[in-house]
Every structure is written in structure tokens, then in C-alpha cells.
């Protein structure tokens, strides 16, 4: 198997191959559903808006959605704790084996799911196979100022660190890989390891309730490992065996 398709957990010598596995915890007891993470993610990652009609057809492109469900009926009704869902960066990711062009690949060194935009040919098999519905597809050229004149001025705030995707490309949460790479480069140039808390994805940085924690989950000393290691932690659709890297901390009493 080519090395980029291997998982560090399959490695014969994991200590050598694994640089560190990135993961996240989301405390549903704290999440207030305020959508700051959704907006922050969109602004950081050049996520387009699609307009009312396409949004109605389920083509909105945000990389995070905040789910809420109703339990019971009036007057004994409860909203389930808000649940932000993004790409779970699974260890056994169902999106990867189905990609015919290796656009959806696995990082062996960091156990991340990568999406290679310039390989993607838009078969959408990966989105079909993702149990978390975490992938979004560019149904149109949403980011093309020639087709959308309103973007001529709006495009000034686009993040130069993040590729602008065009029609026919699948995309998803990357754990703000541009921020991870930046921190890794900085650490390497200073000849040290990445410090805990040095990489903060846009969602975690904005979250007013500090519900999101990010870091290396293979290091038991990090905040994220400690937060995940409580009786409140669980994974979405655990029974599928995808081994997601996002741990949800139960909300409610």
C-alpha cells in the first residue's frame, strides 16, 4: 500500500511514523448554537454562499452545521443539545476507499483525511459514503466573480492561504490545515515540537462558550486528550467503526 494511504495505527513502527494525531472535542453542554463557528469557518476557509434557492435545495456549503432535534411534544418538549457536526476526520474513513482518483486520501503521519482539490473530478462517491454528511459539493462556480459580480468587492477578504474551489469539486472541513501547517513550519524552524494549544482552528477560536478544544489526541497531556477522556465523551455513530477524531461531550443534565 502506498504510504499516504496507510494509517499510522497500521504502521509497523508507529512511534516513528506518527507525528501526532489531530483531534477535537466539542462540549455540547456549553454549545449555545450561536453559529459563530459556522461563520468563522466560512470566513477562514473561503466557503461560498449559494443564495436562497440553492440553500433550499440543500446545497449550502458550510463545513459545519449545528444540529438540533426536538424531543417530545408541547408542553413537555426539549431541544436536544446543539450538536455542531463537521468532518470527523475518521481513522477508518468511509469516504476514502471509494474515491476513484485518490482525491480523498489519508495522511499517514497525522491521521487526517485530506481532500486534494485538483485531483477531484466530482464523482461525489465520497459524499455518498460519508455517514456524517460532512461533505459539500460545489454545484456551481460559486466563487467566480465573473459569474457573480457581487464577489468583485467581497472577494477582498478571501484567505490567501486557502484554495478557492470551483464547480464540480467536493470539499469538507480540513481541521484548518493551513493553520496546522503554519504552526508546524514555525515549530520546525524553531527546532521544537508543536506546543499544546498552538493550533487553533477558526471554529474553536471564535466559539464564545469555549466549547471546542483542539490538539493532539495521541498525547495524553494535551487539553483535548484530557477533555475527551471523561465519562461524557462519545463519538457519532460509533457502531460503524469509523473511529472519528471528534469527541462529543454529552450535554444536558
Amino acid at each position: 500500500m502506498p504510504k499516504e494511504l496507510q494509517s499510522p495505527m497500521d504502521s509497523a513502527n508507529p512511534a516513528q511514523d506518527v507525528q501526532g494525531i489531530w483531534g477535537m472535542t466539542i462540549d455540547q453542554d456549553l454549545c449555545t448554537g450561536c453559529q459563530a463557528c459556522v461563520a468563522a469557518c466560512s470566513m477562514e476557509n473561503n466557503v461560498p454562499f449559494v443564495g436562497e434557492v440553492d440553500a433550499g435545495y440543500g446545497r449550502s456549503m458550510q463545513w459545519i452545521r449545528i444540529e438540533r432535534f426536538w424531543q417530545g411534544s408541547y408542553p413537555n418538549i426539549k431541544a436536544t443539545p446543539y450538536q455542531p457536526v463537521m468532518c470527523q476526520n475518521c481513522h477508518n474513513a468511509p469516504c476514502e476507499p471509494v474515491c476513484p482518483v485518490f482525491a480523498s486520501v489519508h495522511s499517514a503521519s497525522e491521521d487526517l483525511n485530506l481532500q486534494v482539490y485538483n485531483r477531484c473530478v466530482g464523482t461525489r462517491y465520497c459524499a455518498n459514503n460519508c455517514p456524517y454528511q460532512a461533505r459539500v459539493f460545489n454545484w456551481r462556480d460559486y466563487m467566480d466573480p465573473r459569474q457573480r459580480p457581487e464577489l468583485v468587492t467581497l472577494s477582498n477578504h478571501w484567505n490567501p492561504d486557502v484554495t478557492v474551489r470551483r464547480r464540480g469539486i467536493m470539499e469538507k472541513c480540513t481541521f484548518c490545515i493551513q493553520r496546522i501547517r503554519h504552526a508546524e513550519d514555525t515549530a520546525a524552524s524553531e527546532n521544537r515540537d508543536i506546543r499544546d494549544g498552538e493550533v487553533v482552528p477558526a471554529c474553536a477560536q471564535a466559539c464564545p462558550a469555549s466549547a471546542i478544544t483542539f490538539g493532539r489526541i495521541n498525547d495524553p497531556a494535551t487539553k483535548v486528550s484530557q477533555a475527551a477522556d471523561t465519562s461524557r465523551g462519545s463519538h457519532l455513530l460509533e457502531e460503524l467503526g469509523t473511529i472519528p477524531h471528534v469527541t462529543y461531550l454529552a450535554g444536558g443534565a
Partner: peptide, 28 residues
């Protein structure tokens, strides 16, 4: 390019809401 909260400011201690994040869409 991006707004983040100012960690020094005692009001928001580095955090923002969704409106603060999209203030750039007002600017541009």
C-alpha cells in the same frame, strides 16, 4: 482578511459572535 476576538479585551476575551466574524462582508 479575518476578524478574531482580542484576547486582551475584558469584554470578549478573544471570542466573537457570528456577526463579528462577518463584519468583513460589511466592509467589502
Amino acid at each position: 482578511l479575518k476578524t478574531e476576538g482580542n484576547q486582551n479585551n475584558p469584554v470578549n476575551l478573544g471570542k466573537t459572535c457570528a456577526r463579528g466574524q462577518t463584519t468583513l462582508e460589511g466592509l467589502y
